[in-house]
Write a protein that binds this DNA or RNA. Structure first.
Lengths: 356, 356
DNA sequence: ACCCATATTGCATACGAATGCAAAAATGCT
DNA sequence: AGCATTTTTGCATTCGTATGCAATATGGGT
């Protein structure tokens, strides 16, 4: 109604006075599992409702040394995969009665400010989904005793937990799929080259191609960025010996790649050029693109991430764990089909070659 | 290095002891503008660095009654517009030295849990970008004395601040554009019907069309949701008197609409059907879609939102303010062009009819 | 060197809730 | 009813920092 009022801030003592009990009783009423009789609890509840009391989470945190806040660090949200992750994280964390403090933006080498924030707010845990500052920041947090889980990436020194999918397998699977599709010349549009996901996906791709005698992959650097991917693929398709199959390190870039191929080079997909992506993100399913792509089981990944974090928080033990989930190669229309190996599974078509 | 360590938690007293000063001195060292000599400040800083001290924001909040946390409530992130907003919000809030606590997910009528959280954490302000629970929640917060700014929506009772674009103007402009393009029959795919943005956009559209003698707009309900938009447009295009121009309440749905029109009905865009969207979100710029759309000046909107919030927090006065910014009709390839009125502006084509 | 104005410093307390401990009340058992 | 046991309750203290106030140190002017 009227404005200008400063925060009233009803305190537990006020409620206590009103209910004719001690402040302790009020505290216990709002502390699950505390020793309190139903009778006083009811009295307190009434008083609390009348005054509009809510326990002050800040004060509670101070004494319990638990903020019930989880920091989520995400470099950029341009790639729809991350907003999806974020939403799912929000849902699961809320279910566990945790809040989500979000940090976005590039903070590169200079991760200190972020780290400062994290420390200052005494967050109970950190979910790191930023390629750029993973290694540095994660170590700092780990030594500070804050549980950290890397999402969709790992570091060399595996002292810090992570949740990923089998990227190497994925890269390999894609190579096999393209080989089975009869492609002759192979390209790769990379993500950020130093990122673990990029390295692993490419490694698998290259291995499997090499095993089939293809050592000359045409590589362009996209840095997980639309514009750079466009530049890279433009150059790649301008070559005289242009590839007839390109694995793009994620769907976000694959979309851009398809647009360039079609509208700048007039290529038909998949007749002239096959594209395979990674993530199975929203736009990959849109009819205009229909990207054949390695799916990442987002829900299970998030579930694992939150689960691991909760475990570490509860136990106080920070034991590094690496959970690797499996994706599937979802077959759509952006790549030529192999003669065999495509199976139907709950409404989707999956490439699953029968290992002979 | 070694795990299992509980949070060490260096306190200001420890730093004080080490530096040979009082705890107050430490506090003042970390409080900008406090009275402290350069000499002691230096001593404190040294000690702090050695011990790895960071002020405990929780404890600070308790006494200052300022959490330096802003809550952002966003219903869903599926529409890329919102992740973009979120990223920009993160940037600006960080610049103001505020943290961003994110709440996502549908919470409909039952907004109480969210409200509880907000109150419990004593957030300094709230940015509401969720259509569904705007009106209810915003009132509660306003009466609780917490500054609230509605982002991209308003409520009837205008006691709470908001930042929007001139949606009605936008709808009108779109109608004028389509009329000038020589279209004969008009359709509309709505967002959530009760939302202020939807109402205003449609109102403007309808007004301008009515003024030109078109009273029979074909309407389908999309609820800002891809799937529902698909169903709606499928039905709309199946009619014998199908429209040759459709205004879709946002780009997120417009993309789905275009896919249905092209791939299910075999229509050519814009020859057979013109589509106009709203927001000018990422995919609208992708070549496959090239959506002609009313842009929303995202950066300026976010800037205004943060600015207003900061103002209210600083002054303690919660005076409702309604900032309405202007967008532009960005012309691309999804709609037939009028003969006149299209101008070039920093790399984009804009529809700007010269008022005769 | 002395005095006064100003800049620093430390002391003590406050913020709001949680919790160990001991006192008080409620319960069970014979 | 009487005693032992368990459950509830209140008291007092604690978390880590900020801040009003009084005490002290610093500096400038003569």
């Amino acid at each position: 109604m009227d404005s200008g009022v400063k925060k009233p801030g009803v305190t537990s003592s006020e409620v206590a006075r009103r209910a004719g009990v001690s402040q302790s009783a009020v505290s216990r009423t709002f502390t699950p599992g505390a020793s309190i009789s139903p009778k006083t609890r009811a009295k307190v509840m009434d008083a609390a409702k009348e005054l509009g009391y809510r326990p002050n989470a800040i004060a509670r945190s101070l004494i319990t040394n638990r903020s019930r806040i989880i920091a989520v660090v995400m470099a950029y949200l341009e790639n729809l995969f991350y907003p999806d992750v974020l939403e799912e994280l929000g849902r699961l964390l809320a279910k566990e009665n945790y809040r989500l403090l979000l940090f976005t933006g590039q903070m590169d080498r200079d991760s200190d400010p972020v780290f400062d924030q994290l420390m200052q707010y005494r967050v109970d845990g950190i979910i790191l989904a930023s390629t750029t500052l993973s290694s540095h920041l994660s170590e700092e947090c780990a030594t500070a005793g804050i549980p950290v889980v890397l999402f969709n990436r790992t570091t060399e020194r595996d002292a810090v937990s992570s949740v990923t999918t089998s990227n190497r397998e994925g890269g390999r699977r894609i190579a096999e799929f393209l080989l089975a599709g009869g492609h002759k010349r192979f390209g790769y549009i990379s993500g950020i080259e130093s990122s673990s996901t990029n390295r692993d996906r490419f490694a698998g791709y290259r291995e499997a191609l090499a095993a089939a005698g293809h050592d000359d992959i045409v590589v362009g650097v996209g840095n997980y960025n639309r514009t750079e991917a466009e530049v890279a693929v433009r150059q790649m398709l301008g070559r005289s010996d242009r590839p007839d199959a390109i694995f793009v390190a994620n769907d976000h870039m694959a979309v851009a790649v398809m647009d360039v191929a079609r509208y700048e080079f007039g290529l038909n997909i998949p007749e002239d050029l096959s594209i395979v992506g990674y993530d199975d993100v929203g736009p990959a399913r849109w009819t205009s693109y229909g990207i054949t792509t390695m799916s990442q089981p987002l829900k299970r990944m998030v579930e694992a991430t939150v689960g691991m974090l909760m475990g570490q928080i509860a136990s106080g033990e920070i034991e590094a764990e690496h959970r690797i989930l499996n994706g599937e190669l979802v077959v759509r229309t952006s790549a030529r089909l192999p003669k065999t190996g495509i199976v139907e599974a709950d409404g989707r078509r999956i490439y699953k070659p029968s290992k002979a």
